[in-house]
Design a binder for these strands. Structure first.
Lengths: 211, 211
DNA sequence: TAAATCATTTTTGGATACAAAAATAAGACT
DNA sequence: AGTCTTATTTTTGTATCCAAAAATGATTTA
């Protein structure tokens, strides 16, 4: 409509959401023209959106410049989760010296919300809890990287059903992590976090066995 | 020029090189029009190039859509190097089970070249050595991330002078790393790598103390 | 019938053109 | 003189248009 209102971000968000919820399936070709028609804009902002999605890993551009929804694989899932362990352990270690009780309280608040709301969106509360603990590190590069990995992981975790047993274990791990933070025990927190993410990885990994 | 030849990559490479060598200094405003004139193209490919450079962290786009060369700081330098430790340690651990002697020989070849050529481009040989050891991990996401961090680090290391003492230490650490790989000792290799990168970090870090 | 060649259509990267923010410069007012 | 307002310029985002790859389909040939 109006000539200068950054349609790019909107298109990126919409397409990303459709990719990670599986509406747009892996290997589906994405044609600029049809996307432009769908969003009532020209191909220009669509092109930029596709480029951004490419850098984020949600789409791949083959050698002939055709854009497809990026494929998924168990190997990719494992890769993402191993990178998450490395990045998030670094984040909690970097944040620890700067953590105030107020900030831990905030994370603890998310933890309580998870315990209370049984069937609420576990995902966003979970990431909010984690990010609350990482943000005091004041490391924008690292935080951005963790955010990217989280979004990449969402593509896989979206379709996963979480049983109560896993929920209980996750809650216990969160509690232990928060306790370690209150105690300012860096090594304990790092250990908690590592096993926490590793447990999620090992839990969901089998669901993505290749055909 | 010709109508469909991907000028974007060329512009990205040139600008990135000028940013990391300091030709384009931090906070310098980058105007699409003048860049387009410099490269004899329209603003279209320039826009895409700037967006890519933004995702790579070489430029920042402020709220008013003005693009500047990204600032540098000691904190950013430390952040990059801590992320390198986390990512590269993961890479060597992931690669270890798949490493063949032939692949280690390749890394060893780069090591020999570094020892031989005294004043050659230490930088590219160094990254080649490291990447040779990581590539067998077959983890494209992780390898891309490491590549990005390396390029981000180049912005800082470019201006650093490496004395012979540091060179000797680095060479010894490379040798120890390669030995650990031949021995398929994952923990030892991870330890070597961590101290190797940490030494570089601690060596260069003081050069970027804020004013 | 299967493969190869050629014409047509589709899709993409780039150039040009135009409207709206943002920045800059100029003038009015206290 | 210093500050606020307003007009001009600059810079950016998007739409439209064009040419070249790539893909598709039809036709020919063995």
């Amino acid at each position: 409509m109006s000539p200068t209102p950054d349609h790019v971000a909107e298109i990126v968000n919409q397409l990303r959401s459709e990719i990670l919820t599986g509406v747009l399936k892996p290997d589906l070709p994405l044609k600029q023209e049809s996307i432009a028609a769908r969003f009532q804009v020209s191909r220009m902002p669509v092109r930029e959106a596709l480029r951004q999605l490419e850098m984020m890993g949600f789409v791949t551009v083959n050698q002939n410049r055709r854009t497809h929804v990026a494929p998924t694989s168990q190997a990719d899932f494992l890769e993402i989760y191993d990178m998450r362990i490395a990045a998030e352990v670094l984040a909690i270690r970097s944040a620890m010296p700067h953590l105030t009780n107020a900030q831990i309280d905030k994370a603890s608040g998310f933890h309580a919300k998870i315990l209370a709301g049984q069937t609420e969106d576990f995902g966003s509360l979970n990431t909010a809890l984690h990010m609350a603990l990482y943000e005091p590190s004041a490391r924008p590069r690292l935080l951005g990287h963790i955010q990217n990995l989280g979004e990449a992981a969402d593509r896989y975790t979206f379709m996963c059903s979480v049983d109560q047993a896993f929920r209980d274990k996750s809650n216990a791990e969160h509690a232990a992590l928060i306790d370690a933070c209150y105690a300012r025990d860096e090594d304990a927190a790092a250990q908690c976090l590592e096993t926490h993410i590793r447990d999620a990885r090992d839990k969901f990994s089998p669901e993505f066995k290749e055909a």
